[in-house]
């Protein structure tokens, strides 16, 4: 079967061609590249979530081990965390807008939405850094207790992911600027938006397990 055949029978590249048969599921040969790239990236995201789960597990084990130092209830400022959360969730929304702009091939809207996403993501990082700085200033840095080691690692690892995402976001904007809405660039953008939304999912877990449970402890 030629590539054109697949495109006609499968206009949305969902991989399904009726009768329950899908390329890559045995009947039609290798799946189209967009499916392969998206699938591979999902697998990567799953592995990333497994890594986070190891940090979550470590945090759960060490959450009560304050070694005479401050506990979460004394340290966490839920107002600050609420603003962080709002910024990150909103950035997912603007990232969604960027996806719509890509689908509509509207580059000006794309840049606006991506710039907004960047600003929101960057403010999230700044708020997080401010929180870290406050804690370190009052002798509640990561070396103070096992609880704080686990806290800084888990939250910091998410922060590093967001920072890497911001770097990727800028690169993505430059790519669309330089190359336009080319197929390979679109696939890359799809991966970027998957990545950005996945960071939200991890933040929701983090917000609940670390901050909400921690503030009540």
């Amino acid at each position: 079967m030629t590539a054109i055949d697949v495109r006609e029978r499968d206009p949305y590249h969902l991989g399904h061609r009726g009768h329950g048969h899908a390329p890559g599921h045995g009947d039609g040969g290798p799946a189209p590249i967009r499916i392969v790239v998206g699938y591979g990236f999902w697998i990567f995201l799953l592995s990333d979530i497994v890594m986070f789960s190891a940090f979550f597990a470590a945090y759960a084990v060490l959450a009560g081990k304050t070694a005479g130092g401050p506990s979460g209830a004394e340290l966490f400022d839920l107002r600050n965390v609420a603003i962080e959360t709002a910024a990150l969730l909103l950035s997912s929304f603007t990232c969604g807008l960027a996806s719509l702009a890509v689908t509509a091939r509207r580059s000006s809207w794309f840049y606006v939405a991506m710039a907004l996403t960047f600003v929101l993501g960057a403010s999230f990082i700044l708020l997080e850094l401010r929180e870290f700085a406050h804690m370190i200033a009052r002798d509640a840095g990561p070396t103070r207790s096992a609880f704080l080691s686990a806290f800084f690692t888990l939250v910091g690892c998410h922060g590093l992911h967001v920072t890497a995402g911001l770097l990727w976001l800028l690169t993505m904007m430059a790519q669309i600027f330089a190359k336009g809405f080319r197929d390979d660039i679109l696939r890359r953008f799809m991966c970027f938006s998957l990545f950005w939304h996945a960071l939200d999912i991890i933040w929701v877990a983090l917000f609940t397990v670390v901050y909400l449970l921690g503030a009540s402890r």
């Binding site: 081990k65 990561p142 207790s145």
Partner: peptide
């Protein structure tokens, strides 16, 4: 990924004095 996370924790202990696996400050 579990290996990556575990070695990262030991690295943080060694490089920055974290307390994931140390004998003191609540490490396990």
């Amino acid at each position: 990924p579990i290996l990556t996370a575990t070695l990262a924790m030991l690295t943080l202990d060694r490089y920055f004095g974290f307390h994931f696996f140390t004998n003191e400050a609540g490490g396990n």
